[in-house]
């Protein structure tokens, strides 16, 4: 299903939105790349969430396609949901950004599910409360406050 101009499928992926399935397919393949980059991001946290990519599109002949940025549907994966936005500039993909909400960088990507588990466990009762070593004073006031709550 490659286009007759022999371009990389990635170029097709950012064609107008009626060919959404291709965008989906690209997002899927980009995911594996992004996954690797995310792991790298996690190990070597970057200050920006933009992943710079080497332009992989080529000139497609005829009129240059307009510069634009498209955003993928949210795609679920192992650690949550990922949403990518792909920017085309001068006929080439100039950037793939890991999208806003749940996917701002590697770390946020990897661990949102933990917060959900943690919150779910919150309401379970327990015998002991752990935390950073409290001082005698903190301990006493927490104790006093707990006793007050007992009524």
């Amino acid at each position: 299903m490659q286009s007759s101009s022999g371009n990389s499928p990635y170029t097709n992926a950012v064609l107008p939105s009626k060919r959404k399935w291709k965008l989906g397919a690209t997002v899927f393949s980009v995911l594996s790349i992004a996954g690797g980059l995310l792991v790298n991001n996690h190990l070597n946290p970057a200050t920006t969430s933009t992943i710079a990519v080497t332009p992989i599109g080529t000139k497609t002949g005829g009129a240059a396609k307009p510069n634009k940025t498209v955003t993928s549907d949210p795609v679920p994966y192992q650690f949550g949901t990922i949403q990518l936005s792909v920017t085309r500039k001068n006929g080439k993909i100039s950037a793939i950004d890991v999208g806003q909400s749940t996917a701002s960088n590697g770390r946020d990507q990897a661990f949102p599910y933990l917060v959900q588990y943690a919150i779910k466990a919150q309401s379970t009762n327990f015998a002991n409360l752990g935390g950073a070593t409290y001082t005698t004073d903190a301990f006493k006031s927490a104790l006093a406050s707990a006793i007050t709550k007992l009524g």
Partner: peptide, 15 residues
């Protein structure tokens, strides 16, 4: 069973 369960404080003073 309750003794096997431990709460973890939020990272703010218990006081």
């Amino acid at each position: 069973a309750i003794d096997w369960r431990m709460g973890i404080s939020k990272p703010i003073s218990i006081a």
